Amino acid sequence: MIQKYSRIALPLKISFLIFSMVLNCMGIIILQLSEENISYTNLGFLEAFKDLPIAIVSLFAATFINRFGSKISLIFSLSTVAVCSLLLPFVGGFWFFKLWFAIIGISFSVAKISVYGILRNTILEEIPLAKVMSSVEASFMIGIFVVNIGFGWLISSEYSDYWKFGFWIIALLAVINILLLLNAQIGKDADSSKLFSFREVSGFFSKKYFLFFLIIFAIVFIEQNFNSWLPSFYKKHLNVNSFFALQASAFLALFSYIGRIITSRIIQHFSLAKYFIGCTVAILGMLFLFQALVTNGYLQITLYIFPLIGLFLSPLYPVISSQMITNIGKTEIHLFTSLIVIFSSLGSSVGSIIMSYVFEFEYGGYYALFISGAVFGLLFLSFIYFRSFVSKKENNY
C-alpha cells in the first residue's frame, strides 16, 4: 500500500525531514548558547518563540492554504526555510534566534497542514492512512538523528566555530525538494478560500475532540522535552561531553524512526486503540525503570538504554492522528489539522518552559522524569476515557 503512494510520499517525507532538522536543532542551540552564559530559563522561552507563533497563526495558515492549495503552500514554506537557513550564519545575537524560530515555526504550521491535507485528499481508509502517515512521520525522526549527528560532529571538530554554516546543507535540501514538488502529481484540495468562522471552529469543541487534543498535547509535551532537553540532561547530570550528549538525542530519534517504520509495517494486524495502549503502558514502565536506575546511581546503564523509549513513543502521534483524520471531511481537514498544530505547539512550548525552570535547580534534571511520568499517566487515562467515550457514542472502535 505504501508503494502505491510512494511518488506522493517521497517529497512529503523530505519536507518533514527538513522541518525536523530546523525545529529540532533546539537541543543543539540550547547546548551552544548555554556555554555563552545564557540562562536555562531564557533558553526555555526560546522554545516558545518557535511554538506560540505556530499556535497563533495556524487558523490563518489554514485559510492561506485553502486559497492557494496545499502544494503551493508547502513550496512557499520550504522556500522560507531555505532563505532563513542561508541567513543564519551571518546574523548574531540571541534576539535573532527568537526571530528565526518564530519564522520557522510559522512555516512549519503551513507545511504540516499542507502535508496532512495532501494525505487526507489522497488516502481515504483508516489503516492505509495510518501506514503512510507513520512512514512520512518517520522521516521526522530521521531529521532529528541527522541534525544531532551532523552538528555533533561539527561542534566537536576543529571547525566548531563555523557550526552555523551547517544550516546551508538544510537550505540546499529544501531547494531540491521544491523541485521534486513542482514535478509531483498531487490531487487538488476541496474548493474553499473563505475564512473559518467561529461556528466551524466550535464544531470541534465536543468532549471527544477535547480528549483527542489533550492526548496530542501530552504526546508532544513529552516528545519535545526529550528532543530538546535530553542533551542538557546528559551533560549536566550524567557528566558526558557535548558530542555524546547530542548523540543521546540522535539515537532517541533513530529508535523513534525504527518505531514508526515498524508501525507502518504491522499496524494492519492490530486494533489502533490496542496498539496505542500497548505503547503507552510500555513507556510508563520504562520511565519508572529509568527513574529507579537514576535514583540508585546506575547512571551508565541509563545512559545507553534511555533512547530505547523512542520505539514506543514515536508511534503514538501518527496512530491517534490518523484515526481521527479519516473521520474528517475534505472541506474541514485544513481546519482540523490547524487545531492539531495549535495543541501540538502548546504542548511543546509549555513543556519546554516547565523543563527550563526544573533545570535551574541543581538536581532538577532528576525530577524531569517524574514530570514526564505524570504527563504520560494523564495521557493514558485520557485515552482510556476517549476510547470508551467514542465506542459508546459512535462505535468507531
Rank of each mutant, 00 (worst) to 15 (best):
K4T: 13
S6N: 07
R7P: 05
L12W: 11
I28K: 07
I30E: 06
S39Q: 10
N42I: 08
L46G: 02
A48V: 14
V57D: 06
N66Y: 05
R67D: 02
R67K: 15
F68R: 11
S73V: 12
I75W: 05
F76N: 08
F76L: 13
T80D: 10
A82Q: 04
A82M: 11
G92K: 15
A102Q: 08
G105R: 10
G105N: 02
I113Q: 10
Y116H: 01
N121M: 03
I123F: 01
V136Y: 08
A138M: 09
F140V: 00
I144L: 11
G152I: 05
S156F: 11
Y162L: 15
W168F: 14
A171M: 09
V175F: 14
V175I: 15
I176N: 02
I176M: 14
I186T: 12
G187P: 02
A190K: 14
D191I: 11
F196E: 02
S197I: 06
F204D: 01
F205C: 07
F205E: 06
L211T: 08
F213A: 06
A218C: 15
V220P: 01
V220Y: 02
N227R: 07
W229D: 00
S232I: 10
K235D: 03
K236E: 14
H237S: 13
N239K: 10
S249K: 03
F251G: 00
L254T: 04
G259R: 06
I262T: 14
R265L: 15
I266P: 03
F270N: 01
F270D: 02
F276M: 06
I277W: 04
L284A: 10
F290S: 02
A292P: 00
V294N: 07
Q300H: 12
I301V: 15
F306H: 00
S314W: 03
I320K: 04
S322W: 09
K330Q: 09
L339N: 09
V350D: 04
M355L: 12
S356K: 05
V358R: 06
V358W: 00
A368N: 04
A374M: 14
G377M: 11
F383H: 11
Y385C: 02
R387C: 05
F389Y: 15
N396E: 13
